[in-house]
């Protein structure tokens, strides 16, 4: 195990108003690995993954205790620019959410808001990102058509391409396949497998087989607590806790 450390959570607690959503969570995410977060619904998976790009700050009355370090830097320190952070930590959401703009504008959006105007550079970036997201062949002829005309699976790959275009270091996937059919799901899974060569990936999923298929590390969360965190292989073959075993064998949740 000589993986390089990328993100480290140190006793993280998170509150919605007075209600505690996450309790004393500590673990480490390694570079160029896929880390899956599993657990029954309402366990705080999505809350957890939205901490890495400070998306939870959009919800009023939330509070965080503890530290989350990205390359040793605590991302919740006041001098950290949240906009800059979100460029380094990209995100793909549960439901495909392309903007009601053209495919080209969608993929180049992150670059455009960074002030990049050079058409050639943008075109090159868009092509590269779409290729990386395995969508180029399907859309190369209609880059200037509305993204909303794409199928659900294509839309989700477009959203991945959109995230890739800003060249993040980490990509967060928040149940990316929950709105997709099995074929589209398979394509996304293959894609994630390939993407880890370049990126560090954290994925939330309620689908345990998916976690087993694509992840290297798995964190099992329940009622806001981290029950177990280990190599995916270990979690799914010989978990150290009874409750983890009960969950992955489908006895509840």
């Amino acid at each position: 195990m000589e993986s390089e450390l990328k993100i480290r959570l140190e006793t993280v607690n998170f509150f919605y108003g007075k209600q505690q959503a996450l309790k004393d969570i500590s673990f480490e995410v390694y570079k160029n690995k896929v880390t899956a977060v599993i657990g029954p619904s309402g366990c705080g998976k999505s809350t957890l993954i939205r901490l890495f790009n400070r998306m939870n700050e959009l919800i009023p009355n939330t509070r965080l205790e503890g530290k989350i370090r990205l390359d040793r830097q605590n991302i919740y320190e006041p001098q950290v620019d949240v906009v800059e952070l979100r460029r380094r930590v990209g995100m793909v959401f549960q439901k495909p959410n392309p903007f009601p703009k053209s495919i080209f504008e969608n993929v180049s959006y992150g670059l455009a808001v960074n002030g990049i105007k050079d058409r050639d550079y943008l075109a090159e970036k868009v092509e590269r990102s779409l290729k990386d997201a395995a969508l180029w062949k399907e859309v190369s002829g209609r880059l200037y058509k509305s993204a909303l005309a794409l199928s659900g699976g294509q839309q989700q790959r477009l959203c991945i391409a959109r995230a890739l275009a800003v060249e993040p270091e980490v990509i967060l996937f928040d149940e990316p396949c929950s709105a997709l059919d099995p074929t589209a799901t398979l394509k996304i899974e293959e894609l994630i497998q390939r993407l880890k060569e370049k990126y560090t990936i954290i994925i939330v999923t309620h689908n345990m087989q998916q976690a087993a298929r694509i992840s290297d590390q798995t964190a099992f969360l329940m009622l806001g607590e981290l029950i177990e965190y280990d190599l995916t292989n270990k979690i799914f073959t010989s978990p150290s806790k009874k409750i983890t075993e009960d969950y992955i064998t489908g006895r509840f949740g």
Binding site: N53, M55, L58, V83, E84, R86, R87, G90, M91, F93, K95, N97, P98, F99, P100, Y109, G110, A112, V113, N114, C159, R162, A163, V166
Partner: peptide, 19 residues
Amino acid sequence: SHREASLALGATQWQTIKK
């Protein structure tokens, strides 16, 4: 979700509103 997508791509809030 459109706002979130924009912010997650590193757009500022004003850019998100405007674009």
